[in-house]
Design a protein around this nucleic acid. Structure first.
Lengths: 204, 204
DNA sequence: CTACTCTGTTGTCAATGCCAACATCGCTTA
DNA sequence: TAAGCGATGTTGGCATTGACAACAGAGTAG
């Protein structure tokens, strides 16, 4: 308790302060921009202080990635919860939320998925699980509602997730004109649903 | 003319030698591993020599990305050409080739798509065009063959490309078990084709 | 032969990540 | 309460790196 901060020869909140500052830097300037020493300066500690909380730079990046996945998961879940009851609409809401996150926090997303997690980044992988699970759940619901054909939920979910991630990468990498984005998302979802829906179309 | 190298106070092939060595390093150790000075040492020139060919580190990375896209495009085209005549099979061959490239050269792929291209990386973007075009062509052929419904070729192609790229990212990021890969690719393609095929199924 | 331009070399600088030795705070325990 | 101790910061230092400036060799054109 005490947002007085500023003082405290032991700072008290160094770890989270570092994470906050790092998050800001990464969002603004990208991962390469991030320097432990500069970070220490911003927070007002000595250049070796961060070492007590993050053994090396990579550890900080991993922690950032984990935090990123938590934020992403929150975004996805609220978007999903707020979405319409209609299956496809809700799915679109989820995907749209993902893409929004991805474009707003491009550098963070890159950090999250990029192979920068050296072995031992189990935490990073684990942090991604909830969001994957959310996709699986949505797929399962779609199947239960008869909108999707029954089948391996995981595989389907991964394909959908991959498509989202891929679109984000393409947009962030300037390989696709941003104007196309909205249509692209709609189309991708529709196309996904159409490709996975039950076989027999109709029979009036 | 003269693979003698070793001598030549002016080396003669410095630029391509640097690119080769850099490509090797990136493939083996990742982008972060790449150091201009180390590179110069490997090639046997002074630490400032690379500067004559690449103004800064980023320029080297961009050049590497361009070279990467060229390699990717070659792989895709030979795979496509060698593929069966059947539309779906050929598409699968293309996608499989993409994924193979992506998993074998994970670090390179990352370099290619990652937003590391600061403004002015028109070359990088341009280098990606041929591969996108290949996808568009395939889509168009599928439509001509009646396997896909007519519609915007670009949007469809981008969705497919994104799906490939996304799967690659997920695999390279260890977010998906490698055992799933083959099934995943097959499923993704089939699902794509099913989702984009002409509406009226049959009418006996 | 001279001047000019590539291409490569030497020397230097500031910044960075990591490490070791030292300092300080707060909590535990006798 | 006081000694002790571990967690948290600090100072100083080292090797590496990317970038830059000044210089040198080598080929070329006049």
């Amino acid at each position: 308790m005490s947002d007085v901060s500023e003082r405290a020869y032991h700072h008290g909140r160094l770890r989270s302060a570092l994470l906050d500052a790092a998050m800001r830097t990464v969002r603004e300037g990208g991962v390469d921009q991030l320097s432990l020493r500069e970070l220490a300066r911003e927070v007002g500690v000595s250049h070796a202080a961060p070492r007590r909380h993050f053994p090396d730079r990579q550890a900080l990046l991993d922690a950032l990635a984990v935090a990123g996945f938590e934020r992403l998961d929150n975004r996805l879940r609220t978007a999903t919860a707020d979405g319409a009851e209609d299956f496809t609409s809700r799915l679109k809401a989820t995907v749209a939320a993902y893409i929004r996150f991805a474009t707003e926090d491009a550098a963070l997303l890159e950090l999250m998925f990029t192979g920068k997690h050296r072995p031992g980044a189990d935490q990073v992988m684990a942090a991604a699980v909830p969001s994957f699970t959310l996709m699986y759940e949505q797929i399962a619901q779609g199947q239960a509602a008869g909108e999707l054909a029954p089948g391996d939920v995981e595989q389907l979910g991964i394909v959908l997730f991959a498509t989202m991630q891929g679109i984000a990468t393409l947009i962030n990498g300037d390989m696709v004109k941003p104007e196309l984005l909205d249509d692209l998302v709609d189309r991708a979802v529709e196309q996904f649903v159409r490709g996975a829906r039950p076989a027999p179309p109709e029979m009036p």
